[in-house]
């Protein structure tokens, strides 16, 4: 049995992290002109929507939110026993010339983000792509880093980080699980 090692963030912790990231995004991009958020399925999507809501609260102007499914861009499809389900990519705005902020729950090896970068590029040519992640747990396998991070969490490779969000899981928390001894 895997056991829960520690809770890293609770509802309030997640809320504060997202508020800070929203401020950082606005500051870094000098406002919301040409700004758009794209959440990576699944848990990047509610996070992107929450960030967009915060940004609108702060600036009084909204930024569009898109949804990215990266399944068709994964680099491990050939090694999986079964083909994973493909869901829709829903980016209703043109990405060309936009400042895109990719949003995901956890950044780990960087392979998901590599796939997401390719997926976004296939939709057009953004002016810039930035990355926001609620948790950075290290162990990168590719030269990729996040521009906005909720919390850095040193982990061992064997551990797993689980983000649970109200919209999908009915509660807000981030926990680390460790494998059995």
């Amino acid at each position: 049995m895997v056991k829960e090692k520690a809770q890293i963030l609770d509802t309030e912790g997640i809320r504060r992290s997202l508020t800070r990231i929203a401020h950082e995004i606005i500051e870094h991009n000098k406002g919301t002109d040409n700004l758009a958020l794209i959440g990576i399925r699944r848990r990047g999507v509610p996070l992107a929507k929450r960030l967009a809501a915060r940004i609108e609260e702060i600036e009084g102007r909204s930024a569009p939110v898109g949804i990215l499914d990266i399944t068709l861009y994964r680099d491990d499809l050939a090694t999986l026993a079964r083909q994973p389900l493909v869901r829709s990519t829903e980016v209703s705005f043109p990405v060309s010339g936009k400042k895109i902020v990719l949003v995901d729950d956890v950044i780990f090896t960087g392979r998901t983000i590599r796939a997401a970068l390719d997926a976004v590029m296939d939709l057009g040519r953004p002016e810039v792509i930035q990355l926001a992640a609620l948790i950075d747990r290290g162990h990168r396998e590719l030269p990729i880093r996040a521009d906005y991070i909720g919390k850095n969490v040193p982990t061992s490779r064997k551990e797993s980080v689980l983000v649970r969000l109200q919209e999908i899981d009915g509660e807000d928390k981030v926990v680390i699980f460790e494998p059995p001894d």
Binding site: L72, Y73, D118, D122, L123, G124
Partner: peptide
């Protein structure tokens, strides 16, 4: 899409 290609 404009670019009808995915690398799958």
């Amino acid at each position: 899409r404009q670019i009808r290609k995915v690398p799958t």
